[in-house]
Simulated assay, not measured.
Amino acid sequence: MNAMKKKLNLAEAKDIAVSYLTHHGMPADHAGMVADHLIYATLAGHDFAGLSRLQPIAGMLRERGPGGAITTLRETSLSALIDGANVNGYVTSVLAMDKAIALAKRSGIGVVGVSNSWFSGMLRYYVERAADVDLIGMHAGNSTARVAPFGGIDRLLGTNPIAFAFPADPVPLVIDFSSASVMWGDVLYHQQIGQPLPEGRAVDPSGQPTTDPAAALRGAILAWGGARGSALSMIVQALGILGGSDPIVRDGGGRWGYFFLALDPELLMPLQDFKKNIQSLQQQVEGSRPVPHGSSVRVPGSAATRKVREGKTRGWLEVDEPIYNAITSHSSSFP
């Protein structure tokens, strides 16, 4: 049975998120940045990455605190290395992507690494910032080890997502996917709303397949796509190391690592030609023949792009009632 939904306008949703986060010790300016991201994720149709993330974030705040002053450890005309000062990754990732964008606008390329940060949400949120200003964006990040490598049952890899964005008119091409069969936040979300996981996504602590979110959280998530997904996860893990991560980030501590790249297409071809060709690519994919009895062919990431734009125009979103009740219980301001 699906959970009941609560409808909120976007201003209400942001007020609730900011109130909840500041109640748990996050500075108000950081809470606003996080709230904007969670609303975006909800509009994109990814409830597990939306307002349901507030409770896990609060748990991490209790463990790690709100963090300190973010600093730049090293900078060149093309690169920067940022110490996230134990600040939430939703905040440090915006700052890092914007830094990469600024470098690329001056030099054509911007490469930024971030360490000493945690929990960064949907990667497309950051790379889309690059595409919106006519740059190519790339972002990869590793995190706490919760995924078993192909053929194993030990938690050694993060869920290790990777994302790319390419400018085009009227909408950019934005592709964001995880190298894990299910995101950790999605496992938590299934636990929060009392629903089992799909089969083939996780194992329990003894290595037996499980659909129980609680058992999966104690055990390990499986790699997406078998050996190929596991190989991709290793690539993201290596890029995370370049960003400042420990080789393996264990529970209870360790440094996560984020890698950001912004690239000016003008380094290789005129911007308008590139944007026109990316749009042509999208149109030809969408106009191609579907499999027999199948629906139309879709460009990866296009559904999320469309949903975000429609949601902002609509002006409201829906959140599962168990989630709503949990994130408003601290205050009498919300009915």
Rank of each mutant, 00 (worst) to 15 (best):
Ala202Gly: 03
Gln272Val: 15
Asp169Gly: 13
Ile153Phe: 10
Gly194Cys: 13
Pro247Thr: 11
Asp176Val: 04
Tyr258Thr: 03
Ala165Asp: 01
Val147Pro: 00
Ala223Lys: 02
Val182Tyr: 03
Asn160Leu: 01
Leu157Met: 14
Ala165Val: 01
Met183Cys: 14
Pro170Asn: 12
Ser280Trp: 07
Phe177Gly: 03
Asp154Val: 03
Phe164Leu: 05
Gln195Cys: 13
Trp256Ala: 13
Ala238Asn: 12
Pro196Gln: 10
Pro209Leu: 11
Phe150Gln: 14
Glu199Arg: 11
Arg201Tyr: 04
Ser206Ile: 14
Arg218Ser: 13
Gln195Val: 06
Trp256Glu: 15
Gly244Asn: 15
Trp256Pro: 05
Lys276Met: 07
Ala163Lys: 04
Glu266Ile: 06
Thr211Arg: 11
Gly243Gln: 02
Val182Thr: 09
Gly219Pro: 00
Leu239Arg: 12
Phe166Gly: 00
Pro170Gly: 09
Leu263Arg: 07
Gly226His: 07
Trp184Phe: 13
Glu199His: 13
Ser178Trp: 04
Trp184Glu: 13
Arg146Lys: 12
Pro167Thr: 12
Ile162Glu: 00
Pro213Asn: 07
Ile248Arg: 04
Leu157Asp: 00
Pro209Val: 13
Phe150Trp: 14
Val174Met: 07
Asn160Met: 01
Arg201His: 06
Pro213Met: 07
Arg250Met: 12
Ala163Ser: 04
Ile235Ser: 08
Arg218Tyr: 14
Gly151Ile: 09
Arg255Ser: 14
Leu217His: 08
Val187Asn: 01
Leu232Gln: 05
Ala148Gly: 02
Gly257Ile: 03
Asp186Pro: 05
Val147Ile: 04
Leu267Asp: 00
Ser179Ile: 13
Leu157His: 02
Leu268Lys: 11
Arg201Pro: 04
Ser206Gln: 06
Ala231Phe: 15
Leu173Asn: 00
Gln208Pro: 09
Gly200Asn: 03
Pro270Asn: 09
Leu267Cys: 03
Ile153Gly: 01
Ala148Tyr: 00
Phe260Cys: 07
Pro205Ala: 13
Gly194Lys: 07
Ser233Met: 11
Asp169Ile: 14
Asn277His: 07
Leu261Asp: 03
Val171Tyr: 08
Ile241Trp: 01
Gly225Leu: 12
Gly253Trp: 12
Lys276Leu: 10
Ser181Arg: 05
Gln279Met: 07
Val249Ser: 01
Ala202Leu: 01
Asp246Pro: 03
Asp273Val: 02
Met269Phe: 11
Phe259Leu: 02
Val174Glu: 00
Gln208Leu: 15
Thr159Gln: 15
Thr210Ala: 09
Phe150Lys: 15
Ala223His: 00
Leu242Asn: 06
Leu197Tyr: 04
Leu197Arg: 03
Pro149Cys: 05
Arg155Gln: 05
Pro247Cys: 15
Pro149Thr: 11
Gly158Gln: 10
Leu263Asp: 10
Ile278Asn: 04
Ile278Lys: 05
Asp169Asn: 05
Ala231Glu: 14
Gly243Arg: 05
Pro167Cys: 09
Pro172Glu: 08
Ala168Pro: 00
Gly244Asp: 11
Ala163Ile: 08
Ala180Val: 03
Gln191Asp: 09
Pro149Leu: 08
Ala216Thr: 01
Trp224Gly: 12
Gly207His: 15
Gln191Cys: 10
Gln272Glu: 11
Asp204His: 12
Phe150Pro: 02
Leu157Ala: 01
Arg146Thr: 09
Gln195Asp: 08
Ala168Leu: 05
Thr144Ile: 12
Gly243Asn: 06
Leu239Cys: 09
Asp246Arg: 13
Pro270Trp: 15
Ser233Val: 02
Trp224Glu: 06
Phe260His: 05
Asp246Lys: 08
Arg228Gly: 04
